[in-house]
């Protein structure tokens, strides 16, 4: 128990911070990329490709996380950046998928009405489509955060550091307190980020769509 507490208090904080970065940086970058791609794909010009892209996204999601983490290692080598890169790729799909679904599900008649009131393409995107699809988009971001937080533990394998390093040390040296401490902190990070996102979600969701 003493060892457990000392692990939690003394050894964890720097790793926890690293871990937080391993989650936040990829998710933010992934959000920007996925959101842009999804918005582009739902524009008139590309809309015919959305189904095909969706199939690819779905397929991508079946690729095991360990494979995603490992496959860039031969090309990018060890370190923090390769880990961040792999995690960004991993974080992309849930956000892209949900954004695409969200934008696609904006009712046609709402868009028609907006166009009828004389909204331009841009105004429609920012005033109608994005606000209405926000709940689904945020759900995707939440999934992405939870998945990335867990997968980031594997980032330690390619030199990414984070709480994964603590957990792997625990497994290699058979020290349960390291594993448990690492797990608790990762779970805490995932839950806290999820809560924060719920608050943001509540602020962004139009009042009538709240349940």
């Amino acid at each position: 128990m003493d060892r457990f507490i000392s692990t939690l208090v003394d050894r964890s904080p720097p790793h926890a911070l690293e871990h937080l970065q391993l989650v936040l940086i990829p998710v933010v970058i992934a959000f920007v990329i996925a959101f842009t791609v999804a918005v582009l794909l739902t524009r008139q010009r590309f809309v015919k490709y959305t189904d095909r892209v969706m199939t690819i996204f779905n397929m991508g999601q079946t690729i095991p996380p360990l494979a995603v983490i490992a496959v860039f290692f031969p090309f990018l080598g060890l370190g923090r950046e390769p880990a961040l890169f792999a995690l960004t790729i991993y974080a992309l799909l849930p956000i892209a998928r949900n954004t695409l679904t969200g934008l696609k599900c904006v009712p046609g008649e709402v868009k028609e009405a907006a166009r009828g009131m004389g909204m331009s393409e841009w105004e429609m995107l920012f005033r109608v489509e994005i606000p209405l699809s926000m709940p689904v988009v945020m759900a995707g971001v939440k999934i992405s955060v939870v998945l990335t937080s867990g997968t980031a533990a594997l980032g330690a394998l390619v030199g990414g550091g984070g709480m994964g390093a603590v957990i792997f040390a625990g497994i290699d040296f058979f020290r349960p307190e390291l594993i448990v401490a690492g797990t608790l902190i990762i779970a805490a990070i995932a839950i806290i980020l999820d809560r924060i996102l719920t608050v943001i979600d509540n602020l962004l969701t139009p009042p009538h769509m709240k349940t």
Binding site: P65, V146, S149, G150, T151, A152, A153, L154, G164, I167, F168, G170, I171, F174, P176, I179, V180, G182, T183, I186, A187, A190, I191, D194
Partner: peptide, 17 residues
């Protein structure tokens, strides 16, 4: 939901101990 936020490697690690 709680199980879902536990990384896979941790769950394996916890069981072996």
């Amino acid at each position: 939901n709680i199980l879902f936020v536990i990384p896979s490697i941790s769950l394996f690690g916890i069981f072996i101990t």
